[in-house]
Design a binder for these strands. Sequence first.
DNA 1: CTAAACCCTGACATTGGCGTGAGGGTCAAG
DNA 2: CTTGACCCTCACGCCAATGTCAGGGTTTAG
Lengths: 125, 125
Amino acid sequence: MKIGELADRTGVSIRSLRYYEQQGLLAPLRQENGYREYSLLAVDQVRTIQLYLNLGLSTEEIAGFLQCVLKNKEAFCEEVLPVYRQKLADIDEQIRLLTGIRQNLIDRIDSILQERTQTGQEERK
Amino acid sequence: MKIGELADRTGVSIRSLRYYEQQGLLAPLRQENGYREYSLLAVDQVRTIQLYLNLGLSTEEIAGFLQCVLKNKEAFCEEVLPVYRQKLADIDEQIRLLTGIRQNLIDRIDSILQERTQTGQEERK
DNA sequence: CTAAACCCTGACATTGGCGTGAGGGTCAAG
DNA sequence: CTTGACCCTCACGCCAATGTCAGGGTTTAG
């Protein structure tokens, strides 16, 4: 199938499909006229890519184990687990940072509201 | 004082100080030779800017109330509270997203480990 | 006088997945 | 033949704060 059909079937934009190819995640054949020719397997492949992107992995990280997971179960691919663990650590760190800022904001909002009630300023609901 | 001294006193890079000025957060006088001339107040001002940046606010948002908070208490500046609340909502949303991904990662890690022990693959500590 | 140490204004680079437009082939239906 | 729907390859834009050159003045200590 050509790129437009693959885009329709997967819901991924043509631009993204070409980008994935550039990043080494897809390798379609070429017709004589230069058009990309995708096999049916490409549909699953693109969905798999999307799945990993939604986990916050970069195209580079995905490229590191995509070929393996397409042919085997994830558990068989040694590369996957360390990437997952690193990502988990990163996310935990991000959540930690955000949680700190969040509490800071809450404290500041509270103290503003408190100061306003003390000085008689009204809080609009 | 000149920009280098302000940078030393605040720990903020010269590049950033110039950027803040460009964003309307600082407005130093100019000497005859074109050098920026900062008053002592600029030190507090820069620290205040840093404080808000660390809360995740953009220079544009900060510009909206910086002059006010430099002269009054935050509680007196009407612009601050809505910005804080919006930011808090944004952060809550980010945390929600990250938490979802986090759980997804944990589930996947667990299932990989479980599959490996079932199929006899070893988990290196 | 000179070299070091500052200061100035641009302006490009970074990050990363993807939108979008330019300029131009290919192909099938009418 | 023509029109329209596809396809191709660049290549810039985005977002935001900051790093980092380049090319050039000024000042200051020795």
